[in-house]
Design a protein around this nucleic acid. Structure first.
Length: 225
DNA sequence: GCGACAG
DNA sequence: ATCTTGTCGC
């Protein structure tokens, strides 16, 4: 699959933050055309070695939740992990795998946040601009904002708010006796659309939606053997 | 200075 | 993310 090069990746921490602040204004939040969503991609990375990233992209058919295609790519990573700058560490490897993808997804789900980020540009939003497709961020823990009142019952949910009280995501208990997931739109999608479709993709007693869950399984399988 | 802090 | 087996509980 093709994508648009927006900037260099080999930058300093200060430059990375500037880039995020500049790209933030390009994010477009809008309802998802659900009737046109069929192929959904899930992305996940593993690190066989401290500086070797392995990216896996899985495309599923929303009609039967089965895998349509899956590709992978590995590459040396130079940018250390810094909360808020995840895209600068994982972005390059993801894009390398993206080039091997033949199926064009209607939506891409990332392991991390979308707009629920200090500068409104989590990895899902950032990558959404590069690939110019609808994206959603599904994180396993909070990075920015606050929430309260989440109940223990399965499917209990509360809004994730920024310091000013504006909603930037949804905290959802997708599995009983498990920590919740944090859903936020990345690009070309909005809060309601993201919440609705992610819940639809959370099957059985799984905490994560199928795209991300399956991508993670493959990323670990290729790694652990 | 202190606490928070995606993967 | 990664180092790591069995085990308690739904």
């Amino acid at each position: 699959m093709k994508y648009e090069k927006l900037h260099e990746w080999n930058v300093s921490v200060e430059e990375a933050i500037k880039i995020q602040n500049q790209l933030r204004s390009k994010i477009k939040l809008m309802p998802l055309k659900e009737e046109k969503i069929r192929y959904v991609a899930g992305v996940d990375l593993s690190f066989p070695e401290p500086n070797l990233g392995y990216a896996v992209i899985v495309v599923i058919d929303l009609f039967n939740m089965s895998i349509v295609e899956n590709v992978a790519a590995k590459e040396k990573v130079v940018f250390d992990y810094i909360p808020g700058l995840l895209a600068f560490r994982e972005g390059p490897v993801f894009l390398k795998a993206w080039e091997n993808l033949k199926t064009k997804p209607n939506l891409v789900v990332f392991d991390g946040h979308g707009i629920a980020h200090p500068r409104g540009l989590g990895i899902a939003s950032h990558m959404g601009l590069w690939i110019n497709l609808p994206t959603i961020g599904v994180a396993k823990s909070k990075l920015y904002g606050f929430y309260k009142g989440l109940q223990q019952a399965k499917w209990s949910e509360v809004p994730l708010l920024d310091p000013s009280g504006n909603q930037i995501g949804i905290v959802i208990r997708t599995k009983e006796n498990a920590d919740p997931i944090f859903v936020s739109p990345g690009h070309l999608c909005d809060l309601d659309s993201a919440s609705k479709i992610v819940k639809k993709m959370c099957l059985e007693n799984n905490r994560l939606p199928e795209p991300t869950r399956l991508a993670h399984l493959l990323t670990q399988k290729i790694h652990r053997r």
